[in-house]
Design a protein around this nucleic acid. Sequence first.
DNA 1: GCAATTACGATACTGCGGTAGCGTAAATAA
DNA 2: TTATTTACGCTACCGCAGTATCGTAATTGC
Lengths: 188, 188
Amino acid sequence: MTRGRPRDTAIEGRLLAAAAEELRHGGYDGLSIDRVADRAGVAKTTLYRRWASKAELVVALITTMREEVPFEPSDDPRADLTRLVSTIAAGLASTPTSLVADLAAAAARDPRVGESVRALWSERHRAVTAVVAKAQQAGVVLDHVAPAVLVDQLVGPLYYRLLVTGEPLTPEYARTLVVSVLGPEESP
Amino acid sequence: MTRGRPRDTAIEGRLLAAAAEELRHGGYDGLSIDRVADRAGVAKTTLYRRWASKAELVVALITTMREEVPFEPSDDPRADLTRLVSTIAAGLASTPTSLVADLAAAAARDPRVGESVRALWSERHRAVTAVVAKAQQAGVVLDHVAPAVLVDQLVGPLYYRLLVTGEPLTPEYARTLVVSVLGPEESP
DNA sequence: GCAATTACGATACTGCGGTAGCGTAAATAA
DNA sequence: TTATTTACGCTACCGCAGTATCGTAATTGC
């Protein structure tokens, strides 16, 4: 079928494993393409035949590394939102700040990378959107504002703290964000 | 007083001017330290005697470039907030995205740079905080949430859109953020 | 005048991301 | 078998940020 010499299918895995090791030890900056190729026992050009840039390699790596945590909505939108936002906050807090920042920078530089990075981050965004829309339908949230804006006000502050102000992302903070959007809990 | 050969005071200005030119044309990435030094007619080592890294040079440059737009509060917190958030949105929208992202990345990598970048961005943050606190005192905003959180929900989504989702920063969006936090305007 | 001190220019260097060119290996199509 | 096509390793190279070294210029203290 395909004409030429086939790709060695084992190489990609070895490269990703080597890149993961490098990323663990030195972060995005400390990850050296030469060392990744060396560690995988492969020429640098072979790596670049699979990913066009260091950023694409790292995005691919993170995409394969991250385990899908499926979110099962309950019938309590407030609890769902709190859980979701807290999870996102915990995920961001456990990631090195510079990695998130470097991914954002790489995304801003290269539109192709931007697509991949956005795909990486959009999943959680969409989950929050779904719950917010549900909460509005249930009347838990005032619906004078579009759901997309509320989502930005729930998730945006997390990235803002991480990338801009440098303040910590605590679970309390995540809860406070939800309370601010939904209003204080009504006493039953 | 000072013992050795004095610094040539004209050099710093020439370097900053050269860096500004470079930054205009090629952005953060396109700014080459070698070219900046060349353009200023100065050795590269002389540049590094003034700023420890490219990031510090760029932060210093932006700090000197930005004109202070003084904010004079009125007695209408809603109008003040709308004006402030819209101004921040316009400022971010008119800045190349990659520059903001690269500054955030540089800030995440180097704590010294982080301080400078945060100082650069914190001014507007504090202005918003002041107006939000005032609005809470005036009873325009519910005070079940700390002002700092509301500020994050007003400003954070701007950076979030710029750096993460890539969605546009329109004046309408800024207004919607304020409406979402303050609630719909009461008919008089 | 003279020593000490600091700034400057110049050169060379390192490791980096990324590219180009070439010889060779492995597959298919004829 | 042979031509074609693609993958791979290798080497060399580019421009980049940043560092080290050294000779020299300019200033202060003595």
